[in-house]
């Protein structure tokens, strides 16, 4: 975008007021991430001329993200009212990085070469970013490195905890009530689905009788199986309340957990989650893991 001479305004961290605004704007039954998204959009309307909203239909062949992502631009339009919304569409089986995906207004008003150059640059950055994620960094850390910070070396923790769930639940410290930091404080190294390569994850889908058609669910299921092989101590599954695919995937993950004898804690998140109850449950889970370790040592 900056290559084209726009000034990009990105919304800040998620906060209480932002969520409240989103909750007001949304239909009751949508999941928390959509409410957060609408909150961010509303916060941005006062700061910018137009919103650029992606329509993520599918990023792999025959897969979808989720119906709510497909309708996201329309839901946002409904929420922000008259504010102009540009839709960055990724049609079925096509790539977000292609020229056709950009909104018509942008495609018409800028020379083709300039757009292509911008896209190329964006793609390179994207690739570096994903490389960093697969090294075991969290998105906020990876972003800092991308924009020039030094890579910090953390002491390698001995205990490892898996964390699975949709990316927007895992990496937003407000939504997940800072779970990652909590786990780190307890001396765990946290492993998330984005640390594995897509190929590894695709490999794990073979055990299913019918391939899953939600990309993110594939990632959750594949990552869970990989985590089992990685010999993590336990896995925490963060899911958003009223998330459609997760209701079914949870069942698959539970069965895998039983088969592998891996402790699993499933936490549902919504806008009413209170930190105290959340922390208590995580701590109880960690206590159980400690106990299991002690018993195994004896």
């Amino acid at each position: 975008m900056e290559e084209l001479g726009f000034t990009v305004v990105v919304s800040g961290a998620t906060g209480k007021e932002l969520i409240n605004a989103g909750v007001k704007a949304a239909v009751d039954e949508v999941c928390l991430p959509v409410k957060v998204f609408l909150g961010h959009s509303l916060a941005l309307t006062s700061q910018c001329d137009a919103l650029l909203i992606p329509r993520l239909v599918s990023i792999n062949r025959k897969d979808y993200i989720c119906p709510k992502f497909m309708g996201l631009p329309e839901m946002t339009k409904q929420a922000v009212g008259a504010h102009p919304v540009l839709i960055w569409k990724s049609e079925q089986n096509s790539d977000l990085g292609s020229l056709k995906a950009l909104p018509l207004d942008i495609r018409r008003n800028f020379p083709r070469r300039q757009i292509k150059k911008g896209l190329q640059k964006a793609k390179t950055t994207f690739r570096i970013y994903h490389g960093l994620l697969q090294q075991g960094l969290f998105p906020d850390e990876a972003e800092r490195i991308l924009f020039g910070a030094e890579k910090k070396h953390r002491a390698e923790d001995r205990r490892r905890m898996g964390l699975i769930g949709h990316p927007y639940c895992l990496y937003d410290p407000f939504i997940n009530l800072d779970l990652v930091r909590l786990l780190r404080r307890y001396g765990f190294k946290v492993l998330a689905p984005e640390f594995f390569t897509p190929r590894q994850i695709a490999e794990e889908q073979r055990v299913l009788a019918k391939p899953l058609f939600w990309t993110l669910s594939q990632r959750i299921f594949g990552a869970f199986r990989l985590l089992c092989k990685e010999k993590v101590e336990g896995v925490i599954y963060l899911s958003a309340f009223a998330c459609g695919p997760e209701a079914l995937i949870g069942e698959l993950v539970k069965k895998e957990a039983k088969a592998n004898g891996l402790p699993l804690l499933q936490l549902d998140l919504d806008e009413h989650s209170g930190e105290a109850g959340f922390v208590t449950r995580v701590e109880a889970f960690i206590d159980l893991l400690n106990r299991k370790r002690r018993l195994n040592c004896v």
Binding site: E29, P67, G71, E74, M75, Q78, G244
Partner: peptide, 16 residues
């Protein structure tokens, strides 16, 4: 039905 994904999208467009 409660938590139906496509219908929720539709439901948020019905006011329009």
């Amino acid at each position: 039905p409660f938590t139906c994904m496509p219908e929720i999208v539709a439901q948020s467009i019905t006011p329009e």
